[in-house]
């Protein structure tokens, strides 16, 4: 591949825990190959050297929670040819979107000694609510192999292999017998997008829905089955109100059960 120059990569942080961008540094075996193929131009977690934009590929972590960030994301978009959001915060609003179901001002007055200093938006929202996003990479945290796959697909001008089907496919690929069928453990896998490799069911834990809704999530049907397995309404709300609480399908499902409290 005859390239004139290495593509420039930038990593941006909004409201998030940094776990997803650190996954890039966790790519120990692949990291040298990544830096061979791409110039890490703006990644404060990795290097204090900042090379000015524009950037060929921007990875955006975190959700928009402040008026300042709502402005800043437009600057990021303007300086990026290709913008990929990484993780549940950036793609769905993250765990901090639990505030979206109540009044943020009550939290601010409870948590902070001087609430006047805090400038916060009422809702935590995904990046795609604010700017055009070229590709979304799900997960809390994302899967580092999927991250390398997206970078590799970008560098080779091909489609990334990040299927939107359910976690069930990954359970079957790794030959984990369905824990909901075999043990009666409620599992979000049938309505959750694959990508983690179906870790939790392989440890006899139901899927927590970290990768957000799958391509066609039938959450009402799964809720009926959860009730059939003995789950109460409070837990139904909690089950759908996790790291991807504000993703549309999960939000609607938790709200439907909250009404029935």
């Amino acid at each position: 591949m005859a390239t004139k120059r290495k593509p420039k990569l930038a990593v941006w942080k909004f409201a998030s825990c940094d776990g997803c961008q650190l996954s890039l540094l966790d790519c120990e075996d692949e990291l040298l190959a990544v830096t061979d193929a791409i110039e890490i131009a703006n990644f404060p977690e990795a290097s204090r050297t900042i090379i000015k934009g524009p950037y060929d590929l921007s990875l955006v972590e975190g959700s928009i929670t402040t008026p300042h960030d709502a402005e800043r994301i437009h600057q990021v978009r303007r300086s990026s040819k290709f913008l990929v959001t990484i993780g549940a915060c950036a793609t769905a609003g993250g765990i901090q979107s639990l505030r979206n179901f109540s009044d943020v001002n009550t939290y601010i007055s409870t948590v902070y000694a001087t609430p006047d200093y805090i400038s916060s938006l009422q809702k935590s929202t995904p990046i795609a609510d604010h700017v055009f996003v070229d590709f979304e990479l799900r997960g809390c945290p994302l899967n580092k192999y999927q991250l390398v796959e997206v970078i590799s697909a970008f560098l080779n001008s091909r489609r990334p292999n990040v299927p939107p089907y359910s976690v069930c496919v990954e359970c079957k690929q790794r030959e984990t017998p369905c824990i909901m069928v075999a043990k009666g453990i409620p599992c979000m896998g049938p309505v959750t997008q694959a990508g983690c490799g179906a870790i939790c069911p392989s440890y006899n834990r139901g899927c927590y829905g970290c990768f957000g809704p799958s391509e066609m999530p039938n959450t009402p049907s799964l809720s009926i089955w959860f009730e059939h397995l003995g789950m109460n309404r409070t837990d139904l709300v909690r089950t759908f109100r996790g790291f991807n609480a504000y993703a549309e399908a999960f939000r609607k499902e938790s709200e439907a059960h909250e009404k029935h409290y």
Partner: peptide, 24 residues
């Protein structure tokens, strides 16, 4: 649920997809 379980446990279902993979 469109979860695919029925087709993956079926001993006759045979459908596949093809993926291209590249290194960095």
């Amino acid at each position: 649920l469109s979860c695919t379980n029925c087709t993956l446990v079926c001993p006759t279902c045979f459908c596949v997809s093809i993926e291209e993979q590249t290194d960095l």
